[in-house]
């Protein structure tokens, strides 16, 4: 146990500072609903992450948001286990046809008001997979999308900027 506490002490706090995105960055991310969210959620949002067909690359970087360097929870952004508790759906992947109904049901299960963030190039435009017999392509082909965070996969910093843009 002593070793454990020693390591914690030795490691110290590694969490980094982040700047809020500027106006032109927000425009690039397509965030037009910022004011509504500011008003309705008072600077705190709950996110339900939905992998609708991704290769798992985006998930790895979303995971990284919870590591001690980014520690996104300090900004009031936290991940929840059910769409019933969520304000925002963070959707990755081209939407595979086998996940289409599951995504629609998750969307319906999320109470209003709600926002959808499409994460990654596949979610934005279909990416490497496009539209086919097995894939619906972009998330916006299935449910309405409010914000797009491009990248393959977007870095934690890009995700931070996109998500911080959503809240105060």
């Amino acid at each position: 146990m002593l070793r454990l506490f020693l390591k914690i002490l030795k490691t110290g706090v590694v969490t980094e500072r982040f700047k809020k995105p500027k106006d032109d960055e927000l425009e690039r991310l397509g965030i037009e609903i910022k004011r509504h969210i500011d008003k309705k959620f008072s600077g705190s949002i709950a996110i339900r992450e939905v992998d609708a067909g991704s290769c798992n690359g985006c998930e790895l970087e979303i995971h990284a948001l919870n590591n001690p360097y980014y520690d996104i929870e300090r900004f009031g952004i936290h991940f929840v286990a059910s769409p019933r508790h969520a304000d925002v759906l963070l959707v990755t992947g081209p939407v595979s046809r086998n996940m289409q109904t599951a995504l629609l049901r998750t969307y319906e299960a999320t109470p209003n008001p709600k926002w959808v963030v499409a994460v990654g190039d596949c979610a934005a435009c279909g990416g490497e997979f496009g539209v086919s017999y097995a894939s619906c392509g972009a998330v916006s082909n299935v449910i309405p999308v409010d914000v797009v965070i491009p990248g393959c996969p977007p870095t934690p910093l890009a995700l931070m900027t996109g998500l911080l843009g959503l809240i105060r």
Partner: peptide, 21 residues
């Protein structure tokens, strides 16, 4: 099978660089 994206099918007809991606 939920994330079946048709990788084998959409690989057909690609050039080597594109298949590597």
């Amino acid at each position: 099978g939920y994330v079946h994206k048709g990788i084998e099918k959409i690989a057909e007809g690609r050039a080597p660089d594109s298949l590597a991606r």
